Simulated assay, not measured.
Amino acid sequence: MTSYAVFLRGINVGGINIKMADLRQALQDCPFTGVKTLLASGNVVLASELEPAAVKDVFEACLRDSFGYDAWVVVLTADRVAELVNACPYPADDKSTHTYLTLASDPAALDELFDAAAALDGVEQTRLGPEATAWLAPAGGTLESPFSKLSAKPKYKASTTTRNLRTMIKVRDAAVAEPAGK
């Protein structure tokens, strides 16, 4: 049994509203155990005997069938979430900037996004691995930041999602707090 973190793309924004209790209910018939939701922004920790790609497929199919929208998720093992949080060189709490991690289910899409952001002025980013990049945005100006505008393009919608580092720390802590399968 492996512990996973599942990051949903685009829920509770843009008209796709899912209550976390409804999400847990929808997932009850899936091959997952210990399902916990965190915050209302689409973060789930769970355990499964499935491989990551299969967790992604089952989870997305459940969302489509239960809530009727084109669902995309990024699935990482709990251990990988911890590695990414630990590798992030930026602070979790800073008065002038906010740290974000953009996660991808398609490393090629993240490669393209990273390279495109490198060509923009004012983008500070660090590649954490094939599935994640960390970047900074000015406090109070995240949505207007160059990286945020770039990553919001439709071509990245199906393969990327972004979380602030504080959320990633909460997901890491929840995923490792309960051993897989409990």
Rank of each mutant, 00 (worst) to 15 (best):
A104C: 13
V123F: 09
L27T: 10
L23Y: 01
K95D: 14
S96A: 15
R24F: 11
V74G: 06
A116W: 01
G42Q: 00
L128A: 08
T33I: 05
D121P: 10
Q125H: 08
A26T: 06
L23M: 13
I16V: 15
D70I: 12
A87H: 01
Y90R: 05
T77W: 04
E83K: 11
L101F: 10
E49Y: 03
G122H: 11
D57S: 13
E124Y: 05
V13P: 05
F59A: 03
V55W: 05
T77D: 07
E49L: 09
L46N: 03
E51C: 08
L50A: 11
Y100F: 15
S41W: 00
V35P: 02
F32I: 12
A109S: 15
D79Y: 10
R80G: 01
N43V: 10
K56V: 06
V123A: 05
A82E: 11
L128R: 07
G68C: 14
I16Q: 12
N17Q: 09
D106Y: 08
A82V: 12
G14I: 13
G34K: 04
Y100I: 07
D57G: 06
L113K: 06
D93Q: 15
A92E: 15
K56W: 08
T97R: 09
D121F: 08
C30H: 00
T97G: 01
T99P: 09
R64P: 00
A71G: 11
T97M: 02
D111G: 11
A82K: 11
A78K: 03
V55Q: 05
A53V: 14
N43E: 02
A47P: 00
T33P: 02
A118S: 15
G129N: 10
A108T: 12
A47M: 00
E83M: 10
P31K: 10
D22T: 01
R80C: 12
T77M: 07
L76W: 02
L39T: 09
V75H: 00
A26C: 06
E124R: 13
E83Q: 15
A53P: 04
A54D: 09
G129D: 13
T77P: 05
Q125K: 11
D29L: 13
N17M: 07
E131N: 11
D65G: 15
A40R: 07
D115N: 13
T102H: 03
Y69L: 12
P91F: 14
G42K: 01
G14E: 11
L120F: 10
A47V: 02
P107A: 11
W72F: 15
K19P: 02
H98S: 13
F59Q: 03
R80T: 14
S41R: 02
T102Q: 06
L110D: 03
D106T: 15
R127S: 07
S48Q: 09
D57V: 06
E83I: 10
K56I: 09
L39W: 02
L120Q: 14
V13S: 02
T102R: 00
T126D: 04
S96Y: 12
P107L: 10
I18F: 07
E83Y: 07
T102D: 05
